[in-house]
Structures are given as structure tokens and as C-alpha cells.
């Protein structure tokens, strides 16, 4: 198993990964609560970025509506906890299933009816918007007034119901991120990974080589949606509140894809580096503004916009591909060079 995992990765890359993992594991020993919340945010975006990347980076299907799956997962788990006291781990399969089903419906309609390119991207937005308006009127889960979970109890960590302090949430999201990284790494080298990349590069050629492109695109959407729903469950229990206007909004979908785009679409490390840069820089900006005593709502988003603009203009492949070449790690990358 370990052999398969590390196969083909340069030693330098492995050492770097190990050091990084150790640093992450040890972080709560030195970090204060504020730093921990920033790290949680970074890991959260690494995880969701990784999940989105399966669809766009691997299979070439641009989703601009991934907030849909975060919201569905979050609402499913939160509603079950709120109404019936069912814990997040028990409701997780249902949350994942709901989001995966939504992804399957979207994918089925789009791929069966040949909705591609711009139209596909807009269809994903439409689905998310549909859910946003729908949940606004879905009173069982609070409607537009929102759904609130009993606030976390800081004195005791209860992993089973995900009630506890930031350190516990930190380790949960760290485990999720590591698992997503390993899963994506294995996927890229699997049959599905090769089929996805072939579809991304040239769908007609992929079909001519015997790949059932409809089926593999469905796999990508369903898997990506399901994984994203897990992040939604985490989100619901970490923030303890859900508002349709916020969770399903298009700006959430955009926020979620900034990391992988800035880091490098289709790479394994890109979503993580991107999440680090964008969240780290945004938080530093906030600190600076705080220190200067200025409070300008919107400044952080303008900064996001400028980062995105700079990356798409000057680094069209994202930061990781050129960076990995500079570090001599490029064989470890992920653009499918299985050698």
C-alpha cells in the first residue's frame, strides 16, 4: 500500500511532504486559537479545492456551483442533528448521498443532453441558485432565517457529536484533507484518473479509445459532489449556523475554486498551496487593516479578485507547476505523468 502511494514520487518531494505533515500535526502545540482558526480555514479550502479539482482539474468539467454540495451536505447533517439529535457521523452518509444525488441529476441532464462548456458552467450556477431560493422557503430547516445548532461546548471535546474546541476541529479537517490528498493521488493513477484526463484533453479521442465518457464524467461529478458534502457537514458543525443566502451563494462557489485555480488546476498540491496563499494573505491583510484601525468591508474580496486576476493573466497554469519545476519536484506533480 505504502509502496503504491510513494511510487514515482521523487525523494525530495516525499521528504517535503513528511515535513509538512509533521508541521501540521504539531501546529496546535504552538498556535493560539486565532492561528488555529486560520489554519482550519486553509485546510477547509484545501479539502474543498481538492474535491472540486476532481471535476475540473481531472475530468475538465467546470463547476461554478459547488456551494450547492456544501450547502446540501451541511443542511442534511445539521437538520438531522437539530430535529432528531442524530450525530454528524451517522448522518454523514445521508449528507453525502443527498449531494451526490444532486450531482448525479445535474450530470445526467447535462451529459445526456450535451450541455457543455459555458452552458454547463451556467447550469451549475443555476442549480445552486435554485437551491438557494428553495432553501429560503424551506421552513423545516429554518428558511431564510437560518438554521442554528446549539453552540459548541468548549469545556469538553466530543468527537462523536463534533462539539468542541478549535483543536478538535483542526484535527478533523486535517484528517479530511490528508485523506482527500491521498485519495486524489491514487485516483490520478487509477483507470478512472486516466480516463478523466483523456476526457479533459480530448473527449472525442477518449471515446474512440473505448472510454464510456458519459459514465466517467458521471463518476467525477458524483464523487466531487459527495466529497464536497463532507466539507459541508464540517462547515455546519464548525460554524453552527447555516443561511441559504450565504451557503448557496455564488460567491461561496467562487471562493471555493480560487485555491485550486491559483495553485494549479489539475495538480494535487495546487489546491493546498492556493488555499494557503489566498487565506494566508487575506488574513494578513485583515490583520494589517485591523492594526491600522481601518474597517472596509469588501477590501478582502477586492484583494481576492486582484490575486485571481494576476494569476490568470501571468500564471495561466497556476503557481504550482512553475514552482515544482523550480524546486526540481515536477515529476511528483500530478498532471498525470505516471512515470
Amino acid at each position: 500500500m505504502i509502496g503504491r502511494l510513494v511510487e514515482g514520487t521523487p525523494r525530495r518531494g516525499l521528504v517535503l511532504l513528511a515535513v509538512l505533515l509533521m508541521a501540521f500535526l504539531a501546529a496546535p502545540l504552538v498556535a493560539n486559537d486565532y492561528m488555529l482558526t486560520v489554519l482550519i480555514l486553509i485546510l477547509y479550502f484545501s479539502y474543498t479545492g481538492q474535491a472540486w479539482n476532481i471535476m475540473m482539474g481531472f475530468a475538465g468539467q467546470l463547476s461554478l456551483g459547488h456551494a450547492l454540495y456544501v450547502g446540501l451536505g451541511g443542511y442534511a447533517a445539521a437538520a438531522l442533528y437539530f430535529h432528531f439529535g442524530i450525530g454528524p457521523w451517522l448522518s454523514l452518509p445521508l449528507a453525502v448521498a443527498v449531494a451526490a444525488a444532486a450531482g448525479a441529476i445535474l450530470g445526467f441532464l447535462a451529459f445526456r443532453f450535451g450541455v457543455a462548456g459555458v452552458y454547463f458552467a451556467i447550469l451549475t450556477i443555476a442549480f445552486a441558485e435554485f437551491a438557494r431560493v428553495g432553501f429560503d422557503h424551506f421552513t423545516w430547516v429554518g428558511g431564510s432565517a437560518g438554521l442554528f445548532l446549539p453552540v459548541a461546548n468548549y469545556t469538553r471535546n466530543d468527537l462523536w457529536t463534533l462539539r468542541g474546541n478549535p483543536t478538535m476541529f483542526y484535527y478533523v479537517i486535517l484528517a479530511m484533507t490528508v485523506a482527500a490528498f491521498v485519495l486524489c493521488h491514487l485516483l490520478l493513477r487509477s483507470r478512472a484518473g486516466y480516463c478523466w484526463q483523456a476526457i479533459r484533453e480530448d473527449e472525442e479521442a477518449a471515446r474512440a479509445l473505448g472510454i464510456n465518457t458519459f459514465r466517467y464524467k458521471m463518476y467525477a461529478v458524483v464523487l466531487s459532489a459527495g466529497m464536497t458534502a463532507f466539507a459541508g457537514v464540517f462547515f455546519a458543525f464548525y460554524y453552527n449556523n447555516l443561511f441559504p443566502e450565504q451557503v448557496f451563494s455564488i460567491s461561496r462557489s467562487i471562493e471555493l475554486i480560487l485555491g485550486p485555480i491559483i495553485g494549479g488546476v489539475g495538480t494535487l498540491v495546487g489546491p493546498i498551496i492556493g488555499a494557503f496563499l489566498i487565506t494566508g494573505l487575506a488574513e494578513s491583510l485583515r490583520e494589517v487593516m485591523h492594526a491600522l484601525g481601518v474597517d472596509v468591508p469588501g477590501l478582502k474580496q477586492v484583494f481576492y479578485g486582484l490575486c485571481l486576476l494576476a494569476v490568470v493573466m501571468f500564471l495561466p497554469d497556476g503557481i504550482w507547476p512553475p514552482l515544482s519545476r523550480a524546486l526540481g519536484l515536477d515529476r511528483d506533480s500530478s498532471r498525470g505523468q505516471g512515470t
Binding site: 486516466y194 480516463c195 484526463q197 483523456a198 479533459r200 484533453e201 480530448d202 472525442e204 479521442a205 477518449a206 479509445l209 472510454i211 489539475g266 498532471r335 498525470g336 505523468q337 505516471g338 512515470t339
Partner: peptide, 14 residues
């Protein structure tokens, strides 16, 4: 119609 972003070997593996 090569898979331009993939290596030559990966093209044939597909």
C-alpha cells in the same frame, strides 16, 4: 488528437 497535456506514455496507456 493527442492528449496534449499528458505524456507520450500516458497517452498510450489510455
Amino acid at each position: 488528437k493527442p492528449f496534449a497535456g499528458l505524456s507520450v506514455l500516458d497517452n498510450v496507456i489510455v
